Amino acid sequence: MAGHSKWHNIQRRKGKQDAIRGQLFTKLSKDIYQAAREGGGNPETNFRLRVAIERARANNLPMENIQRTIAKATGQIEGATYEELLYEGYGPHGVALLLEILTDNRNRTAAEVRHLFRKHGGNLAESGAVAWMFQRFGEIVVPKYKVDGDDLMMVALEAGAEDVIERSRTYVVKTTPDNFRAVRMSLEEKGIPYEEASLTYEASTKMDLPEEALEQVYDLVEALESLDDVQTVYTNLDTGDEEEEDE
């Protein structure tokens, strides 16, 4: 599809791979840690933990690592204490970036992030400078081949979802943060399977850039994502994400 191609083509041209195994495991373990610390170590009653474990297992994180991380988070064994932060900044060409951080040393993380922003022609901003451009919402991704679209729409909207978006291979159920859990539980009760469920951010308005400029922003995003303490990077770029990538 042509509409989504710029960002996707740059990724392919650069030959971007997933994070190296050690770095990926670090990010997955941190996500498990924070989920267990906030909601307890039982994935049956802690949905965020259950999703984090499922994602970790899908990426081959050993079960013993998962159990050890949960034990650290719940105080059964000693370990580092992590805190969640939001960093805000501007990349090349004035692109807004919002970073979800999970760190045990905020001074180290701030220095590393600030260095990368400067290196790639951007700057780390004060709290509130960028966050107002983004909306927090819940997103539940349901494979098309496992559900009837009309049935999904009816169940999701009755449970309080804001919208159900049809893509080439999936439906995306969007909710407010407050209704996210209720909608997810309703889908589970109705036997509707999903492959991803998370709270995320999306820019209220998006900007478009020519391919050369987009590549400069991509370099910064890639560098930020390489840091262990950076869990997710959001931008206000129009990358065509509404058209799901099939390739």
Rank of each mutant, 00 (worst) to 15 (best):
L214M: 15
Y194F: 10
A56W: 05
K27E: 04
A96H: 12
A223V: 05
F134G: 04
R50T: 09
K16L: 15
F134E: 07
R136V: 10
D163T: 07
P92E: 08
L199M: 12
T26R: 10
G40R: 03
L99P: 08
E222N: 14
D148K: 09
T175P: 03
P143F: 06
Q76P: 01
R57M: 15
E112V: 01
V141C: 02
A56F: 04
E244L: 13
L116H: 06
E202H: 12
T109M: 14
K174S: 02
S204R: 15
H115G: 09
R13W: 08
V95Q: 06
E54V: 02
N59W: 13
S226A: 09
V164C: 07
S127V: 11
E189W: 03
N46E: 00
N46L: 04
A96D: 08
G121W: 13
K190I: 08
R169G: 03
L85Q: 07
G138P: 09
D238S: 12
H93G: 08
I20H: 04
G75D: 03
A35C: 03
V95R: 07
N59G: 03
G79T: 02
N107L: 14
A73V: 07
L124T: 06
P43Q: 02
V142Y: 01
Q216C: 02
W132I: 08
V230A: 00
S198H: 13
V233E: 03
E188A: 14
Y90Q: 07
L199I: 12
Y87G: 06
E215T: 14
G191E: 14
A213Q: 12
T200E: 05
A58R: 15
R169W: 11
L224A: 04
Y145S: 12
E38A: 10
D241T: 09
A35T: 00
E247N: 14
E64M: 01
V141N: 01
Q76N: 00
D208Y: 14
Y171V: 08
G138F: 01
E100C: 09
S5D: 13
M185N: 14
I77Q: 04
D246M: 15
E54D: 14
G122N: 08
M154R: 15
T232W: 03
G40Q: 10
R108C: 00
R13T: 12
E245C: 07
Y87P: 01
Y145I: 11
G149L: 08
L227R: 11
R21Q: 09
G3P: 08
A56C: 10
V217C: 06
Q23K: 15
L157T: 07
S29I: 00
K6E: 02
H93E: 15
G149C: 10
R167C: 09
N65I: 04
G75T: 00
E158M: 10
A111M: 07
I192C: 01
T69K: 02
K14Q: 13
E189L: 13
K119G: 10
A159E: 00
I192H: 08
A203G: 02
N236W: 05
R12P: 03
K16Y: 14
D151I: 13
G121S: 11
E242M: 14
L224F: 06
T74H: 05
I101P: 02
L237W: 11
E38C: 00
T26F: 03
D241M: 11
T26I: 07
E158N: 12
Q23N: 15
V142F: 05
R108G: 07
E242V: 14
E100M: 06
D163M: 08
G122F: 06
G122I: 10
V233R: 12
F137N: 03
L152E: 05
R136M: 07
